[in-house]
């Protein structure tokens, strides 16, 4: 058996020492329990702290297990948590854009709509929470496919149905759409899923920069586009919203 990496063994020993109940230990206790020089122990603790596995109490200077450890065991983001965090921002996006807002996550081979805000006018609208949208043709689906490797592997295997003459179905063409999406940070769907309907979407990231969902607006192509192009102000509003939700989930500014 190959020799194990010593600093990882030491880090594991520290985590075991801090585990169990609400244990807080000072640097010298940790160092002496594990038979380490203080400087060595401190270096490992600092690294664990930077990764979120250990936290230092500001007042006493003692160390305890960090919240990141809990998240490792329960790492996926609950979709209802995502909706709760997104609520204020998506309302504001609907108001500022004048269009309906959808929040989607990857589910099986499609986009599951987890939140929907009505277009702010007096028209009769039906809540579409729980609906499934296709991955390859919608703006939400393209964003997920571009940023989430799991979504990408699904969309490559799935049958990419031609919903309208504008739907992109060939794999090469689709991959270049995803490249473009990653390059500019947003995706569009101009009459590729439904005739007369256009949408724009951008990715939502969590604190570890993992793509957890996509948010976008959808509306009549005549309103969402101008002179054949998507309106820049709408793209900016969608991206602002995605950033705001990401920040609320703990992602750093970007």
């Amino acid at each position: 058996m190959a020799k194990n990496i010593q600093s990882l063994e030491r880090a594991a020993a520290m985590l075991r020492l801090l585990a169990g109940g609400e244990r807080r230990l000072g640097l010298s206790d940790i160092a002496s329990s594990l038979g380490l020089a203080k400087g060595t122990a401190h270096g490992i603790l600092r690294t664990l702290q930077a990764e979120g596995f250990v936290e230092q109490d500001a007042a006493s200077g003692r160390y305890q297990l960090g919240a990141e450890l809990l998240r490792l065991g329960n790492s996926y983001l609950d979709i209802h948590e995502l909706r709760a965090r997104a609520l204020v921002w998506t309302d504001d996006l609907a108001r500022s854009s004048g269009e309906s807002v959808y929040l989607g996550v990857l589910h099986q081979q499609g986009v599951l709509i987890v939140h929907h805000v009505f277009r702010p006018d007096e028209s009769r609208q039906v809540l579409e929470v729980g609906a499934m949208h296709p991955l390859h043709s919608t703006a939400l689906g393209k964003v997920l496919s571009a940023y989430d490797p799991v979504a990408h592997s699904e969309v490559v295997e799935v049958e990419r149905k031609e919903f309208t003459p504008r739907t992109i179905t060939a794999l090469d063409d689709f991959e270049s759409v995803l490249d473009l999406t990653r390059a500019r940070g947003w995706a569009a769907d101009v009459e590729e899923t439904w005739d007369g309907v256009a949408s724009v979407a951008a990715p939502i990231h969590d604190r570890r920069r993992m793509p957890v969902g996509a948010v976008g607006i959808t509306g009549a192509v005549e309103r969402v586009c101008k002179d054949g192009e998507l309106r820049n102000d709408l793209i900016a509003a969608v991206r602002d919203c995605a950033r705001a939700v990401s920040r609320d989930l703990g992602a750093g500014r970007f």
Binding site: D91, A94, R95, H116, V117, F118, P120, Q125, L127
Partner: peptide, 8 residues
């Protein structure tokens, strides 16, 4: 000013 965001 009142806007409907969702209706069940």
């Amino acid at each position: 000013n009142w806007r409907r965001a969702a209706e069940w």
